[in-house]
């Protein structure tokens, strides 16, 4: 394990992103520390999700996207043309806003990632599926019905299954794009608890619309507005003594 546990696992340098003519990210430079949760907050359309998606090159799947600047993961520029985005995404996993399990069984959902990465051994696969489901705090609820379709689960369970699925490929970074926005308060609390536990093993970047959630789960918070980072600091300071007026207005709910 790394000697300095809280070095910047990911950092971006002057990251610009254009959707066709739209300038969505305007020179973002941000450090995301290892084994910490970094929350990205800001009003809708401010670029926080776009920023998150550029951290594992998910924006590559969208036409008309033009990226300038660099994103470093473990000091490797992931937009360098020699970097394989497939390997990158294995290392930098992602949880989406809407839970999106595959129309397969619970077991096959979790085993999908390891299988495509070449794991065929049934015993090892079983073990990996179990540990992933346990880590995602859903094992006890599904252990007797692993063969059941994942689509039969409730929304909160589906989202935790998606987390288990992401964990099964053994990533180092987890990007979460509003992972609890479609869930009820109880399911949300479970996800938040989970995030708290996961940060001992993973570096987490989370986009959220929910101020309380950002305050509860994150160590650092970046406030995005109109494609730029207005303020980035320890979460405590962002919520108690922000430097910028805009940040204060936003976190206190006066605009946004």
């Amino acid at each position: 394990m790394e000697t300095a546990p809280h070095y910047a696992k990911l950092y971006t340098k002057d990251l610009h992103l254009h959707y066709g003519p739209k300038h969505a990210l305007k020179g973002i430079s941000l450090d995301m520390k290892a084994y910490k949760v970094t929350a990205l907050i800001g009003p809708s359309g401010c670029g926080k999700s776009t920023f998150l998606r550029s951290l594992n090159r998910m924006n590559d799947t969208i036409d008309n996207v033009n990226i300038k600047g660099s994103v470093f993961v473990d000091n490797v520029d992931i937009y360098h043309k020699k970097v394989d985005e497939v390997q990158l995404r294995k290392k930098v996993g992602m949880i989406f806003q809407k839970s999106n399990p595959f129309p397969k069984s619970i077991y096959d959902n979790v085993a999908y990632g390891p299988r495509i990465h070449g794991l065929r051994d049934k015993a090892k696969l079983d073990e990996l599926v179990e540990t992933s489901l346990r880590r995602a705090a859903i094992w006890d609820e599904v252990k007797d019905e692993l063969k059941k379709s994942a689509l039969a689960l409730s929304g909160g369970q589906q989202q935790r299954l998606c987390i288990a699925r992401a964990l099964a490929v053994e990533p180092e970074v987890l990007l979460m794009d509003e992972p609890a926005s479609a869930l009820d308060p109880i399911a949300t609390a479970k996800i938040e608890e989970l995030i708290y536990e996961l940060k001992t093993t993973y570096t987490i970047v989370i986009v959220t619309h929910n101020m309380q959630q950002a305050a509860r789960v994150s160590d650092y918070t970046a406030f995005f507005y109109m494609g730029s980072v207005v303020e980035f600091d320890a979460t405590e300071r962002i919520f108690t003594s922000p430097k910028e007026k805009q940040t204060e207005d936003y976190v206190t709910g006066r605009f946004g």
Binding site: M58, Q87, K91, P101
Partner: peptide, 20 residues
Amino acid sequence: VMMEASLALGATRWETALFV
């Protein structure tokens, strides 16, 4: 979102197309 989920797990485009 299915495609994105698969790609985010490190699947290639063909793996995504064929298996998801």
